[in-house]
Design a protein around this nucleic acid. Structure first.
Length: 888
RNA sequence: AGGCGCGUAGCUCAGGGGGAGAGCGCUACCCUGACACGGUAGAAGUCAGCAGUUCAAAUCUGCUCGCGCCUACCA
């Protein structure tokens, strides 16, 4: 057996790419749908084809990769299915910008050429993010990678559209929708971002047609008055009820419009009179339907005023606002102008102010689909973690409105609806109809495409081959868990629930884990405009992928946003290095060691098991249990935290230090046994860390004696990997306490580290004396003692500093070195602290209510605690007296 | 306007009815044969405020203050 030397520090750059290639080449990411046994599956939230890896992706995919690697190691039939989203508006915008740079535009190119151009763009520049996901270590089955516009998924989209249409769940109609004048498309309500802006509230006078004064209305959008077809007041409003049924004269245009009464009007706001523009306001649209008002569109699809705007025709809507106010002012029709802060809708892609607009669109009747999706979460078939998000989900689902699915774009799934050029007949069909079934005329396909989220809604089953009945669907659907951010709970998760339940008649995932947002060190949301974006790729370059992943995991407490800072990542980079060096030490000391097996704990001679070995094996069992529990509960932070604590503060700080004398010693049998435990512990640590830190663990793994295959496919250390031993843990706890106590005295008394001291320990507990005596070889090097004595309580040694741990009084003999002044101060301070606790405990135990009402074990514990405190105080008090005597 | 969440050590955050925790930072000493990306020890907190429930509250309830976020048609 040879032991390869490891470098002194871990250098991720030399390691990561090499192992990723190895995994990929050896097919270790590939899922086999024919493999027997329990399956575990995840579909990736498909990143936009235009996207670049940001912190949200990094967090999201680190979590997915952790789970996937964990389940793969457990031997489950594991699939992580990757892919990308065609991202309608985003991609179209990118290519349009490119065209603009070339001095042309999509209209000049024509639809067909433009779509070709987008595909070319995709081949050339799209999907950068896939390589970035690989940098992150994502173990996706790339052989199954999908794209929402690929052939199979397009077929699924068509199938779903046609079926929903046939079931009467898709309809077409004239409704008011959110229109983006920049992107030239309809937007769903969800795609509108509301932002509070400082604006004005204009009070305008509309003259009554019968010449009797005027009615003053309040509006934030005076330019829309050109499309007014009524003024509404509340019939309960005594000021105005008399006006109902009369007419007013629309300024500028002179149109006579009715005054109507409707309870919708808020009497408190503005003047209590509301101008009604059914074509450019969703509420006015509703009023218009109710009162049978005509809808007059005065703004066109570019956001410019149209023919209906009379003198303002051709002006931009905001320019028109200024001009119309100038004119109204001149005519004395402006009563006043107030400041007003209110929410204005913006396009989520390009941030242009949206224009509510009346137009013909396609919708999904969503209520019947939503009911099933609500039920599935209510009855627990799908679990939302953390549970707080369930409420948000229900609130939205219960108030859901029909989904506007048509978009006036060129890049996307073209709606499979066809119109007859002659008779106008509408046909919705999977195949292009050759001719009109009614009149034989030629057919023309609908120009609109579907909302990008329409195809993403099908992702969990379309990617597995639906509508065909594939083996994959049988094995991997429903998927095990969906990991995603709350920002797309409605956009995506809710819609997958609805579509999955409708078309697969089963939930799309058993669990939905909603993670938080990654923010900067100041807690600000990262955004390009703020310039506070931390690029994951730069972080990986600087600190290594494993350190980065570990940081994300460690900070990802459920329901709490992740604040990322360099210091934090650096801290975990140090941890990676610590692990590296612990492994380095371990491997250096496995010279001549022959491994027996890597699966269960090593075969050991129980009678000769050292305390340190017994202890670490016991701790290993506990940690393995905890880690597994936290992985199953999506407590990624605790997985990371427990492993950090165990590796650094138990394995490195204690175990490795305690094992040195054995490894450097002469007892070959003892050495062999410790080597076995050491090798085993390292192996288990590596495997437990692998899901979080795939690269460094793989790199070390191959140097562990006996390793023959990638850590990725090595067995997960489940229960039975260690060896529970409560006695060993109790004894070790006592030893650690005693050792820390000696070190504490050394530190407080400023004994130089190189100075060897004499240690005396006193205890009336025979078992503890025995353990301390037996473990002298282990204690002495750790406290730098040239001698160690353990005796029953009695005459205290002279010239010694004392401290108490549990039943043991610890003396460090410092003849000539001791500063009695300092020692007295230290003892006094310690006693003051104790006194506080003793007073508190006494008070508690004197309280009859406490004794009567608190559970027995709590009372017993408190009594015991008081005894311990008192005993300690007595010992310290004696020591203090002695020190004070010696001082004189 | 409604809803949700958060205020715990200098910073970032765990914890969640009975002894205040971690990481980073800070202080002191140390290049001890894995690691200075390190070691040992140490200092540091009226657990936002007020009231209530309880034998017992950082933890449960209510209110107040401060900070985020989400949803919403008040023009």
């Amino acid at each position: 057996m040879t032991t390869e030397q490891l470098d002194k520090a871990y250098e991720p750059q030399n390691v990561e790419g090499r192992w990723y290639d190895y995994w990929e080449k050896n097919g270790l990411f590939r899922a086999d749908e024919n493999k027997a046994g329990e399956s575990f599956s995840i579909v990736i939230p498909p990143p936009n084809v235009t996207g670049n890896l940001h912190m949200g992706h990094a967090l999201n995919n680190t979590m997915q990769d952790m789970l996937v690697r964990y389940h793969r190691m457990k031997g489950h039939n594991t699939l992580w299915l990757p892919g990308m989203d065609h991202a309608g508006i985003a991609t179209q915008n990118v290519v349009e910008r490119q065209l603009a740079a070339d001095g042309t535009n999509r209209e000049a190119l024509g639809r067909e050429k433009f779509v070709e151009r987008v595909w070319e763009w995709k081949e050339q520049y799209g999907g950068q993010i896939i390589n970035q996901l690989k940098r992150l270590g994502s173990s996706c089955d790339w052989s199954r990678q999908r794209f929402t516009m690929d052939e199979g998924l397009s077929r699924a989209v068509k199938e779903v559209f046609v079926r929903l249409y046939e079931e009467g769940l898709i309809y077409q109609g004239d409704y008011i929708i959110n229109w983006c004048p920049r992107c030239h498309t309809a937007l769903a309500d969800l795609e509108v971002e509301h932002e509070d802006l400082d604006a004005k509230l204009y009070y305008l006078k509309y003259k009554l047609a019968d010449g009797d004064g005027c009615l003053t209305i309040a509006t934030t959008r005076p330019e829309t008055l050109l499309g007014d077809t009524a003024v509404a007041v509340n019939p309960e409003d005594e000021r105005f009820s008399a006006y109902i049924g009369r007419e007013v004269i629309l300024p500028v245009l002179g149109r006579r419009i009715p005054v109507i009464g409707d309870g919708y009007v808020d009497m408190e706001f503005g003047t209590g009179a509301l101008k009604v523009t059914p074509a450019h306001d969703p509420n006015d649209f509703e009023l218009g339907l109710k009162h049978n008002l005509p809808a007059v569109k005065c703004i066109d699809d570019d956001g410019r005023m149209n023919d209906e705007a009379g003198p303002y025709k051709g002006q931009d809507r905001f320019e028109c606002r200024k001009n119309i106010m100038k004119d109204l002012e001149a005519q004395g029709l402006v009563d006043k102008i107030d400041d007003l802060r209110h929410a204005v809708g913006h396009c989520y892609r390009c941030k242009t102010v949206v224009e509510p607009n009346l137009s013909k669109q396609w919708f999904i009747k969503i209520k019947p689909l939503a009911e099933k999706a609500i039920a599935a979460v209510e009855d627990g078939r799908t679990r939302i973690v953390p549970k707080v998000w369930e409420k948000t989900y229900f609130d939205w689902m219960l108030n859901i409105k029909d989904w506007c699915i048509s978009r006036q774009l060129w890049w996307g799934h073209r709606i499979p609806a066809y119109y007859c050029e002659d008779c106008g007949e509408l046909v919705v069909s999977r195949e292009d109809p050759a001719a009109c079934p009614k009149c034989g005329g030629s057919m023309r396909q609908e120009t609109d495409v579907l909302d990008t989220w329409f195809s993403s809604a099908l992702w969990p089953f379309s990617t597995l081959g639906w509508p065909d009945k594939t083996t994959e669907l049988g094995v991997y659907y429903p998927t095990s868990v969906l990991i995603t951010g709350f920002d797309i709970l409605f956009f995506w998760v809710a819609r997958m629930m609805m579509m999955g339940l409708h078309f697969m008649e089963d939930i799309p995932f058993h669990d939905v884990y909603i993670h938080a947002l990654v923010r900067d060190a100041e807690g600000q949301k990262m955004s390009k405009s703020k310039g506070n974006v931390i690029d994951p790729l730069e972080v990986m370059d600087k600190f290594g992928t494993d350190a980065f992943r570990f940081t994300l995991a460690a900070l990802a407490a459920q329901g709490r946003d992740v604040r990322l800072s360099d210091e934090r990542i650096q801290g975990y980079r140090n941890f990676v290095n610590k692990l590296w060096n612990a492994a380095r030490f371990t491997l250096m000391n496995l010279e001549g060691f022959e491994p027996s097996r890597t699966e269960g704990p090593p075969r050991l001679d129980e009678s000769k098991l050292s305390l340190a070995d017994a202890w670490i094996l016991s701790r290993l069992e506990t940690v393995a249990e905890e880690v597994e529990k936290h992985l199953n509960g999506y407590h990624f932070d605790r997985v990371a935290g427990d492993l950090y604590q165990f590796v650094w503060h138990e394995f490195c700080d204690w175990y490795l230090e305690m094992v040195k004398p054995v490894l450097y010693g002469e007892d070959e049998a003892a050495k062999k046994q410790t080597q076995a435990v050491l090798a085993h512990t390292l192996s288990v640590i590596l495997r437990m860390l692998h899901p979080i830190m795939p690269f460094v663990t793989e790199e070390i793994w191959w140097k562990v004696p006996g390793v023959e295959q990638s850590i990725m496919i090595s067995p997960w250390p489940g229960t039975g990997i260690g060896r529970p031993d409560a006695k060993a843990e109790r004894r070790m706890e006592m030893l650690q306490g005693v050792i820390t106590t000696v070190r504490n005295i050394r530190g407080e008394m400023n004994v130089p580290p190189s100075q060897q001291v004499e240690v005396v320990m006193m205890s009336d507990n025979a078992e503890e004396r025995l353990v301390i005596d037996q473990q002298e070889h282990l204690i002495r090097p750790l406290v730098r003692a040239k001698s160690q004595q353990v005796v029953p309580m009695g005459e205290k040694p002279k010239g010694a500093a004392a401290h108490v741990f549990g039943d043991v009084e610890v003396f460090v003999i410092l003849a000539g070195l001791i500063d009695f002044e300092e020692e007295a101060k230290r003892l006094q301070k310690e006693m003051d602290k104790l006194d506080k606790d003793i007073i508190k405990a006494n008070k508690k135990l004197a309280n009859e209510d406490f004794l009567a009402k608190a559970p027995e074990d709590v009372v017993a514990k408190e009594k015991e605690r008081l005894e311990v405190l008192n005993a300690k105080r007595d010992k310290l008090s004696l020591s203090l007296t002695r020190v004070l005597e010696l001082r004189q």
